Amino acid sequence: MKQLTDFTGQDSSVYESGTFKTKQNGIWKRGSAYLRIALYQATVAGISKQIHGPRNPILRKYYQQKCQEGKPTKLAIVATSNKPSRMIFGILSSSIPFQDNQQ
């Protein structure tokens, strides 16, 4: 799973030097930029509010959970954009069709 996160370029960067540790960490810009952008845009579309509820209730619930933990909006979106890649990996590795049991 770590290799998939590395490939998508959404693993967090940690900058440390001696006793210095930064408080603002971003994501590494290595890996596939196209895949990273596609996952980000799909996540933003999935968590957006619609008339009849969010387009993807699983992503919306995870995004709201991250926001309630005190994460800034963009950080919560990046954390949520890791969720579809984990879901796709689970579906492909188990060969079991996806079923949304939350509704």
Rank of each mutant, 00 (worst) to 15 (best):
K29W: 06
K66N: 05
E69I: 00
P72D: 15
K74S: 09
K74L: 13
S17E: 11
Q41H: 14
G18P: 08
V44S: 02
Y62W: 13
Q99W: 10
Y63R: 00
A33M: 02
H52D: 11
T19S: 09
Q50W: 07
I91M: 15
N56H: 06
K66E: 12
T73S: 10
P57G: 04
R86Q: 12
G90P: 03
Y34D: 15
L35N: 00
I58L: 14
P72Q: 14
G31Q: 00
C67D: 04
S95F: 08
I96T: 15
S93M: 10
R60F: 02
F98R: 03
F20P: 07
P54V: 08
Q41C: 06
I58Y: 05
A33P: 01
G90L: 07
Q24R: 13
I96D: 10
R55F: 08
H52L: 04
F20Q: 05
K66M: 12
T43V: 05
Q64C: 02
H52I: 06
N56F: 01
Y63D: 04
S48I: 10
Y40P: 02
G53D: 05
S94Q: 10
Q68V: 05
F98A: 11
I47A: 04
N101C: 11
G46H: 07
I47M: 04
G18C: 08
S48E: 13
F89H: 08
Y63G: 00
K83Y: 10
G26V: 03
Y34A: 11
S48Y: 06
T80K: 01
Q64N: 15
Q99T: 13
V78T: 09
H52W: 07
I27W: 11
G18W: 10
Q50H: 12
K66V: 00
K21A: 05
Q50N: 11
S93Q: 10
K21E: 05
S93G: 03
Q65F: 04
S32K: 00
Q50V: 09
H52E: 09
P72V: 15
A45W: 04
R36N: 08
N56A: 00
P57A: 00
A45N: 09
A79Q: 04
M87L: 15
I27P: 12
T73E: 12
G31I: 04
I88T: 05
K29A: 09
K74T: 14
S17C: 13
L92T: 03
P57Q: 01
I88C: 05
Q68T: 01
K29V: 02
V44M: 14
R55N: 09
P72I: 13
K61R: 15
K71V: 05
K61L: 06
N101T: 13
I91Q: 08
S94Y: 00
A33Y: 06
S81E: 13
T73I: 11
D100I: 11
R60K: 13
P84T: 04
I47C: 00
R86S: 11
